[in-house]
Design a protein around this nucleic acid. Structure first.
Length: 721
DNA sequence: CTCGATGAGTTTTTT
DNA sequence: ACTCATCGAG
């Protein structure tokens, strides 16, 4: 392949990164600077200029979408599918490895992957079985605790309770939960990675095999890696593989779920002789948008420091609208979109971004009133739907009878006269004998300790499952699914559900059959020498790749989504709504400087989604949790220099008469956000916010001892540290 | 088993 | 204000 095809479309900085001498490379790539492009071209470069076999390359991403996108772009660039190369998510790759080495990893051959909902149900079960009060020990909390520990690579035996009763319980639940998973042959998301990591540590020969094979590791969105993922990369890379990591510290918005930006800083120390490159030329946004975004993010401390620039147009100023309330705000946004469409734009070029999902409702109402089609991202995905999970539970139980969670889900669905009493009896038997519910079911039928009618129902269920098991044995995957959906009685069950809902449920179940057919036509690659059961693979696929959000993609729709889900996307028109203190930055992040910085990065991410036009809005009054709340405009608004802003005023009169009103000046307090200060009485603290000017200026300081306080500058007498 | 009352929680989300 | 899960009564 001609290298000019690879290098010609790149700018200097990109080309330098792509052609960097073989070794560890860190690319700091600002928003819209061609991050994925560099990754893809690097792979092509390795293959053509350095003669690296695709067999020796792994490329890791966070989402299935990103992995699919990358695979597609590699294929387009090379002209052939990159067979032999591993391109996938951390979890997808870990899953593939565990399937190949399930024995050494201590898993059963048909082990199943649990999604978060399954995990929560499992934890509820475990907590109840431990005889704990589930009101006092909420499963959610345990779920967070366990996932966070696993993401740090920690097992219960690594944890110390330090005589803290809370920790003591959490560790006990963690222990019980692990043994529940082991017993029933299920693995949660974090477990995939942790198990894989442990597999490598305990079986150096397996690790060596992969270290010898994979000479090049490429990692996307490196700022989002958590401690375990980082350790996983280090282990796989060993001393010899070359790691090519791409990320942007300014776009780290997942700290709250364990992502560690520090991994970027750590890179140069942990990966020998790493060279780093910066991509700062932006190809997406206008000059005004970039300058404004740069100004906002400049308020964060501890950045690696990048300044985006563009060779493109300055563009229009950023529009700012102060709405009276959230209806007014939504009305404004929808009117601007309507204008855009009138002038020949499309709706799908417009994105309305907000901090929290609850904000979509008012926007939707107004959009509906205008008859303007829209699409809300987020919400349930295909494989997460109730009816789909019901059908999958049948399939899982047939594929893996020890899967207690699936057993519990369908034992009385559709209702078949097996109530809590009977299930409790089966559960008791299972616990006493240390066996699965499925096996306990047969015992309880034989022992006849239950009422005759209950035993009869149990017997019928057991026979029913056995019949289905025999019936689907020789069938192809989609026939198996079809058979089970009908035989299980789920169709009949959901037909009874009245209205639209029942009908869509049935449609979804039909869709599941098609999903099965599509899956058998394009099965994922495997490495196991043993024959793999297509059903087991399909079930893992369903858990690992929950499928698309809602459809309607073909229609020209306005795009509604949270700032988090907008990461990685771009739109000509971006509307950033609800820029109010308390909402964005969110009040739950208000008392912690590092959380505030994450909010600011979120704002930066949102702003840099815009290509041509960015519109900001805030409402003076908003109904929140059923209460009218008044909020000041977000600090992020006044962090934008006024020369890039234009206030939009409606209702005719004022708009032309007054020049755009300057917003509260940049910083009248002489203090920097994040600045450490000393107060005579409250001690040391960090400046979080300020408002007003001159004598009336007030600052918000988070004191390490006294917590958050607003102080009047004139009297506070703060000393800078 | 289904229905309605009651109470808790309500930032962001992928795998 | 609204959703969602759980629980007791019919």
């Amino acid at each position: 392949m001609d290298v000019s095809t690879i290098l010609d479309p790149l700018n200097d900085a990109q080309r330098q990164a792509v052609c960097a001498a073989s070794g560890n490379v860190l690319v700091l790539a600002g928003a819209g600077s061609g991050k994925t492009r560099v990754l893809v071209h690097r792979i092509a470069w390795l293959m053509s200029a350095e003669n690296v076999s695709p067999y020796g390359i792994v490329a890791v991403t966070f989402t299935n979408k990103a992995a699919a996108e990358m695979r597609g772009r590699i294929e387009r660039l090379l002209g052939i599918p990159p067979s032999g190369m591993w391109v996938g998510t951390f979890h997808g790759i870990a899953h593939r490895l565990l399937r190949a080495h399930y024995k050494e990893a201590g898993l059963s051959q048909n082990f199943q992957v649990m999604d978060s909902e399954d995990q929560l149900r499992a934890l509820r079960r475990v907590i109840r079985d431990m005889g704990l009060d589930d009101a006092k020990w909420p499963a959610r909390e345990a779920q967070h605790f366990i996932n966070a520990r696993k993401d740090e690579g920690l097992r219960p035996q690594h944890l110390e309770h330090q005589h803290d009763p809370f920790l003591k319980h959490m560790i006990a639940i963690y222990t019980q939960y692990d043994s529940y998973c082991q017993r029933t042959g299920v693995v949660d998301f974090a477990e995939l990675l942790l198990r894989n990591h442990e597999l490598w540590l305990q079986h150096p020969e397996i690790l060596q095999h992969y270290q010898r094979r994979f000479k090049h590791l490429l990692i996307d969105e490196f700022q989002d890696t958590n401690a375990l993922q980082y350790a996983w990369v280090r282990l796989l890379a060993g001393k010899t593989a070359a790691v090519f990591a791409v990320g942007d510290d300014d776009q780290s918005i997942y700290g709250w779920r364990g992502a560690r930006v520090e991994n970027i800083l750590q890179f140069n120390q942990d990966f020998a002789q790493a060279s780093s490159f910066r991509l700062e030329q932006n190809y997406r946004s206008t000059g005004n948008i970039l300058n404004a975004a740069n100004a906002v993010i400049a308020n964060n401390s501890g950045r690696l420091g990048k300044t985006l620039w563009t060779a493109g147009k300055t563009g229009e100023p950023i529009r700012l609208y102060s709405a009276f309330n959230e209806q007014d705000e939504a009305q404004f946004v929808v009117d601007r979109i309507a204008e855009w469409v009138e002038q020949g734009g499309t709706r799908q070029e417009c994105a309305v971004l907000y901090r929290s999902n609850a904000q979509s409702r008012v926007l939707e109402e107004i959009l509906i009133r205008h008859g303007m089609p829209y699409r809300v991202y987020g919400g349930l995905r295909f494989f997460e739907r109730q009816e789909i999970k019901d059908a999958l539970a049948y399939l899982r139980l047939l594929s893996h009878p020890d899967d207690d969670a699936s057993f519990e889900r369908i034992i009385n669905l559709p209702p078949r006269g097996i109530g809590t009493r009977s299930v409790d009896a089966v559960r008791e038997l299972a616990r006493g004998g240390g066996i699965s519910l499925w096996r306990a079911l047969h015992h309880s039928i034989e022992h006849q300790q239950l009422a005759a009618r209950a035993v009869e129902s149990l017997k019928q269920f057991a026979n029913h499952m056995a019949r289905m098991h025999a019936a689907i044995k020789a069938l192809s995957l989609h026939e198996q699914i079809e058979q089970v959906i009908h035989d299980s009685g789920l169709i009949a069950h959901y037909e009874k559900e009245k209205g639209e809902r029942g009908r869509t449920r049935i449609e979804n179940l039909q869709e599941l059959i098609s999903a099965g057919r599509a899956f058998s036509e394009a099965p994922p690659p495997t490495d196991s020498d043993q024959p793999v059961d297509p059903l087991a693979m399909f079930l893992s696929h369903a858990a690992l790749e929950a499928g698309e959000r809602q459809g309607d993609e073909w229609e020209d729709c306005v795009q509604l989504m949270t700032l988090h889900s907008a990461k990685g996307l771009e739109f000509k028109q971006v509307f950033l709504c609800g820029l109010e203190e308390g909402l964005f930055p969110h009040k739950l992040s208000a008392s912690d400087a590092s959380k505030l910085e994450e909010e600011r990065r979120l704002c930066y991410v949102g702003m840099t989604r815009a290509m041509e036009c960015l519109t900001l809005s805030h409402a003076e009054k908003r109904r929140l949790y059923g209460e009218e709340t008044f909020a000041r405009p977000s600090r992020f608004i006044r962090e934008i220099p006024v020369e890039f802003l234009q206030e939009v005023r409606l209702r005719g009169s004022v708009s032309l008469a007054l020049p755009s009103q300057p917003l509260p000046a940049q910083n009248e307090t002489g203090l920097r956000l994040g600045q450490r200060v000393l107060h005579a009485k409250f001690g040391e603290g960090v400046v979080l916010n300020y408002e007003g000017q001159g004598r009336h200026a007030r600052v918000q300081v988070n004191f390490s001892r006294e917590g958050c306080k607003w102080l009047v500058m004139e009297y506070a007498n703060l000393k800078q540290l």
